[in-house]
C-alpha cells in the first residue's frame, strides 16, 4: 500500500481551476519531484495535502488514514512535515527552540506538568533537547544552536527549516522549492543533505523544485503540472525529452 494516495484531487478558487483531477501514489522510501511553470498549481497541491485548504473534490489517504478535513497539526502528527517556499521560521526564538518546538505534537505533558515541573515534564524536555541537539549536529548546524534564525545567512535558514521539519519525525517530507534563492554552493550542500536524509532515515520525500540540477540528481520519479493539469509522469530522463513538457515550459514556437 502506498504511503500517500491521492485520487482525483480538484481545487477551485471561485472561477479559477487551480488543480484538476490530480492523482499520485507515493511509496515508502520514494523520492518524487513535482515540477511545472509558475502558477501551475504545485504549491496548491502541498497546501491541500498538508491540510491548509479543503479540496473541492478528491481524496487523500496518508499512511492508511483519510486526511481530508483534518487540521494541519493533526496531519503533522500522522507523520507529514513540510517546508515553505518563503522561509517560515520563528525568528525571535533561537535555532534550538525552533527545533524543540517541532516536538510539540509528541510532547506528552500538560500545562500543569509545565508549571509544577513534574518528573514527566523534566524527562520530556530532556529528551526533546537531546534529540534536537542531535538533529542540529546531523544537519551541521550545531554551532548555531543559540543563534536567532534572523541573524543567519539565507542558506542556513533554509537548512534550519529542513532540520525543523525533520525533527517532527516525518514519514513523508514535503519540500516546497528548497533551493529557491540559494547560490550554487548552497545548492550542492542542499542536495547532499536531502540525499543524506533520504538514505539515513529511509523516509519518502516529495519536492517541488525548479532547478533542474536538484531535480535531476535526486528524484526517481517526476510529475509535471501545468494550469492545474498533470501533463506528464516519468523518470527525469524521460521528462527531459518529453515534447509536451518542453512545450509547457518554453511555449509553442520552439517545436
Amino acid at each position: 500500500m502506498p504511503l500517500l494516495e491521492i485520487n482525483g484531487l480538484t481545487q477551485r478558487f471561485g472561477g479559477l481551476q487551480a488543480l484538476a483531477d490530480f492523482s499520485i501514489d507515493i511509496d515508502e522510501h520514494d523520492l518524487v519531484g513535482l515540477i511545472g511553470p509558475n502558477g501551475a498549481g504545485k504549491t496548491t497541491v502541498f497546501n491541500l495535502v498538508s491540510g491548509f485548504y479543503r479540496p473541492t473534490s478528491g481524496s487523500i489517504r496518508f499512511a492508511g488514514t483519510p486526511t481530508l478535513g483534518l487540521k494541519p497539526h493533526r496531519v503533522t502528527a500522522l507523520g507529514m512535515a513540510r517546508t515553505f517556499q518563503n522561509i517560515r521560521l520563528w525568528h525571535d526564538l533561537t535555532v534550538l527552540d525552533n527545533i524543540r518546538l517541532a516536538g510539540y505534537c509528541s510532547l506528552g505533558y500538560s500545562f500543569l506538568d509545565a508549571v509544577l515541573r513534574t518528573k514527566r515534564y523534566k524527562d520530556a524536555e530532556q529528551s526533546i533537547r537531546t534529540k534536537s541537539l542531535e538533529i542540529l549536529e546531523m544537519m551541521e548546524l550545531g554551532e548555531f544552536a543559540q543563534e536567532y534564525p534572523k541573524n543567519l545567512p539565507y542558506g542556513l535558514q533554509r537548512r534550519v527549516e529542513l532540520a525543523r521539519a525533520l525533527a517532527t519525525k516525518p514519514k513523508l517530507l514535503l519540500l516546497d522549492e528548497p533551493a529557491a534563492g540559494l547560490n550554487s554552493v548552497d545548492v550542492d550542500d542542499l542536495i547532499r543533505h536531502i540525499r543524506w536524509i533520504y538514505d539515513e532515515f529511509r523516509i519518502s520525500i516529495w519536492m517541488i523544485e525548479h532547478q533542474m540540477k536538484v531535480v535531476m540528481s535526486l528524484c526517481q520519479h517526476l510529475m509535471v503540472v501545468d494550469f492545474g493539469r498533470t501533463i506528464a509522469k516519468g523518470t527525469p530522463l524521460e521528462i527531459q525529452s518529453n515534447p509536451v513538457v518542453i512545450n509547457a515550459y518554453l511555449g509553442d514556437d520552439v517545436l
Binding site: 491548509f52 494541519p72 497539526h73 515553505f84 525571535d92 526564538l93 518546538l101 505534537c105 517532527t168
Partner: peptide, 17 residues
C-alpha cells in the same frame, strides 16, 4: 511565541494553535 511569530508555521509544525 510560535503562534505569535508565524501562525502558519506553528500549525504545520504540529502546534494546535
Amino acid at each position: 511565541s510560535a503562534v505569535c511569530q508565524n501562525e502558519v508555521a506553528a500549525e504545520i509544525m504540529g502546534v494546535n494553535t
